[in-house]
């Protein structure tokens, strides 16, 4: 709690800027969330529990969080690879590839969903070759994972990239001088330095993916208990004018996301201490 003690900074304007920052965060982030929790509390504990423990809701939460975790894990590996290639190698068209990474950010998610469905549907460009192999992608949970990988890729790449760029070459030279082979350098020098960024990026990717609606809804198939995502449950409750039920599911999603993010932050804190950084 040392930060609460009054300390003098050489940089002026601490009080004012902190005040504005907290006001802004409160207005933009906390206010809607508080309204959400307040609204769901109108429901009372019994009906709240009844709503969120219904089989369809539980199945959809499992699906949303499971597919989001899988997508984040895949992006953790592939996103790192992309960042690595973009930082460490020079090749023609590199700027173009670099810009390509941001595309999922820029594209409206519904467009992404329709594009992916067009490709992976049984009569689509890729789907028509996958179907005979017994690989169904569109309208199954696999399709959901692919859509989530698409929308969350930039988070990993864009958090890992600057860290890799700032990594000093001297560190690796020193390691070579001390007799480390390439694999050892990667494992003992590069990887620990980028791990916190990689974890942040993956956590952000995960958080983004759990709530994703637009891109998933077209490719999911939306069959209850099989491919019905939690945001769709929320939408269908809204369609029935069941606003309280919808907020109840939203609150559960919020809690789950928050605990996962919190756990990842803890893990990050623990690893950075273990590796003796800061």
């Amino acid at each position: 709690m040392t930060f609460l003690a009054k300390r003098y900074s050489v940089l002026p304007g601490f009080g004012v800027s902190l005040g504005y920052a907290i006001f802004w965060l409160g207005l933009i982030v906390l206010l809607p969330l508080a309204a959400l929790i307040l609204k769901s509390s109108e429901l009372g504990w019994g009906p709240f529990w009844e709503t969120v423990s219904a089989p369809r809701v539980v199945a959809s939460l499992q699906l949303s969080f499971g597919t989001a975790a899988l997508a984040a894990l895949i992006n953790c590996v592939m996103g790192f690879l992309v960042a690595w290639v973009l930082v460490r190698y020079r090749f023609p068209g590199k700027r173009f590839v670099d810009a390509l990474v941001d595309l999922p950010f820029a594209l409206p998610t519904a467009v992404a969903g329709i594009a992916l469905t067009t490709i992976y549907a049984p009569n689509g460009w890729l789907g028509q070759y996958l179907e005979p192999l017994g690989l169904k992608v569109a309208f199954t949970p696999t399709g959901i994972v692919i859509a989530l990988i698409f929308v969350s890729l930039p988070f990993v790449v864009r958090t890992v990239q600057p860290v890799l760029e700032d990594l000093e070459g001297e560190l690796e030279e020193a390691a070579t001088c001390l007799g480390a082979d390439r694999w050892q350098i990667f494992r003992r020098v590069i990887f620990p330095a980028t791990l916190p960024a990689l974890m942040t990026g993956s956590a952000m990717a995960f958080a983004r993916a759990t709530g994703e609606f637009g891109s998933v809804i077209f490719i999911a198939g939306n069959i209850p208990l099989v491919s019905e995502i939690a945001p769709l449950i929320i939408i269908s409750k809204l369609e029935q004018y069941d606003y309280l039920g919808a907020t109840a599911v939203a609150v559960v999603m919020l809690m789950l996301s928050f605990s996962v993010l919190f756990a990842i932050n803890l893990l990050q804190w623990w690893t950075s201490r273990r590796h003796g950084m800061k």
Partner: peptide, 21 residues
């Protein structure tokens, strides 16, 4: 027998006509 439950009538049309499902 319903393989895809689209969220709206238009989306169902797309699935049937465009995706040929």
């Amino acid at each position: 027998n319903v393989p895809v439950l689209d969220t709206g009538g238009r989306a169902a049309t797309t699935t049937f006509m465009q995706r040929q499902i």
